[in-house]
Design a protein around this nucleic acid. Sequence first.
DNA 1: CTGAAAGCGCTTACAG
DNA 2: CTGAAAGCGCTTACAG
Lengths: 382, 382
Amino acid sequence: MAKATSPDANAQSNEPALPIEPTLPNEPTLPEKPARPDRPTSFDIAYRAGVSQSTVSRALRDSPLVNKATRDRVQAIAKELNYKVDKVASNLRSQSTRTIALLLCEDPTSDDSMINPFFMSMLSSITRATARQGYDLLVSFQQLSEDWHADYEDTHRADGIILLGYGDYVSARPKLEKLKQAQARFMLWGPLIKDLPGHSIGCDNHLGGYVAGTHLLDSGRQQLAFLGDASQHCPEFRQRYLGYTDAITQRQLTFNPRLQYDAENTEMSGFDACLQLIDSGEPFDALMAASDLIAIGAIKAMQQRGLRVPEDVAVVGFDGIPSSAYVNPPLTTVMQDTQAAGDLLVDNLFKQFHGEPLTTTLLEPKLVVRESSGGTPDSSPQ
Amino acid sequence: MAKATSPDANAQSNEPALPIEPTLPNEPTLPEKPARPDRPTSFDIAYRAGVSQSTVSRALRDSPLVNKATRDRVQAIAKELNYKVDKVASNLRSQSTRTIALLLCEDPTSDDSMINPFFMSMLSSITRATARQGYDLLVSFQQLSEDWHADYEDTHRADGIILLGYGDYVSARPKLEKLKQAQARFMLWGPLIKDLPGHSIGCDNHLGGYVAGTHLLDSGRQQLAFLGDASQHCPEFRQRYLGYTDAITQRQLTFNPRLQYDAENTEMSGFDACLQLIDSGEPFDALMAASDLIAIGAIKAMQQRGLRVPEDVAVVGFDGIPSSAYVNPPLTTVMQDTQAAGDLLVDNLFKQFHGEPLTTTLLEPKLVVRESSGGTPDSSPQ
DNA sequence: CTGAAAGCGCTTACAG
DNA sequence: CTGAAAGCGCTTACAG
């Protein structure tokens, strides 16, 4: 509609631009969709301003090529008509989307109603970092089993992808290969595995495990247990485990492998694993869980079996999820810096866009001592 | 590049389509951006399949207009070349984005590092509902102070908007007016306020408050306190408050207004408000907090002042955030059905797209009894 | 059932 | 400093 008047506007450009309403009265109303007012186009602005559409485009992008007076006039008219550049059109033309896709992979086994709280913090910080760059963020929850491949990039919906929660890199690898092969720009949150396709930002899990182990040993504990899958399938858990046992070995002590039970990153799994551990009869006076969720489940299991935390067993978790401060007793944990993580993921994605070299630092986790490991109540937040 | 071969393809369509590599060797590599392989276009597929580009477009959309044999061939070739329809181009042409924008408004006073956990559940369910419809979800965190207006729709980035956390509808109203005026399609999560622009999905907060009050009275409590801003500025809190006091009034009792203190939806605010309440000296043996976060803060305040929960004071929260099950003691709460909420928000947005009448039901909240109000430990989720 | 053509609303060389 | 024109990669009448 509005469009139709534009050619006329150019034809009679000798005439001064009059503020004629560019919408026609005989607008066809679709029965299916409710009527929407016609979005004004850059041609409408051009007509009103008495300049060419190209000039409108330049003026709105603050191009120095355009005369200041012209620019101001165009911008004023655009504002008056509440005109906004159509992102879809400008994206098509300029071949960029100014959008990042965040793919959150949920473990199919986890509770459907609840996202891993750790990822929530990441989401929050990624959203902020993305917005700071003037980019939009597309969020999608995926199952590892789904065939997402490079979909977001292939379909040109995003300039780059951030992958979260692809913890089991054995099964994700072929998909990552495919992404890499398509020269998609993506960043991975997770462990730094050699010859893993793509770039990762991750936490120094080994250090985190080491710090946790050292803390427990410093507290006088001797029989240290570990809950969490330490296999190659969970490289992050494995690194935590290795750091933990290194702390033990360094003191000339030996980690008792019968004090390790596999667990997935859920409370339920931690609960079950801990029951197994307790019921095995093997004595232990300290426990590191590979995640806070596992730790929370484990504490419940101990309480159910009449073990006191921290008197009988000192417990340390990993992640620093918000709940960790609220459980009973408040959980000592190895806190990950999700703020820095989100920033780095986004920054490095932009570096890929600009062909700059990436900074793949390991983030240093921080031990937060609370009551579950015998810390003073004061050290809990608030 | 690939594009260049397409006209030829049509010109020599008498010749059988040969699988000639459509990319030329003298590709110019930009120094700025890293080289990306040319995305194949529908013309490339057309060339290979020996059909017109229109036919490719139809075949890929499973149009019944196209011969099955042709369709299969085209689809096979598209798959082989890993061709995906360019969303940006198709969106521009078809004038739809197949994208929904979720605008989360954060209270500027709240802790920067942590999103309200209640909204996280909503986000999760909205993401799922959106994906079920084959739509993408754009997520943005906003400050109420920001001038977002109808930006997402104006710039044609989304077909519709879902607004979360615009709790203070007094200050948000002008912006909602503007959205409505622009005939933007949007849904609001929140209270059903009369003549509020747009459509809302909300929880029956009055009922929730009533149920909480009734529960406390049934437990034999007599002096019921309330923590939360009950002014017009917080219509949701206000409704909860009104339901709560109605439960009291209905028993021929009177709510003591000196047992109400304002609090925002943060733990800190609940902590402060509860200290004030305690220090006022006015006796109380039960407390409803307008949210779980407030309740959690309040419990900490009581513990700090030596009040036992639930022995001295029975506490009920509102929302049913994950942490509510973990605090000490586990918190009795009025749980909101975020699953249904997300579904309804998305469904009603789609109804707007199709001009269908909306279903604006109030969602019924559910009381979950845990230890903080004297419930048995068993009723807390395992 | 298929193809040639128009056009979605911009950005950006190219030519003054 | 400005404008006319091309074209991003599709979808969809329109005409066989």
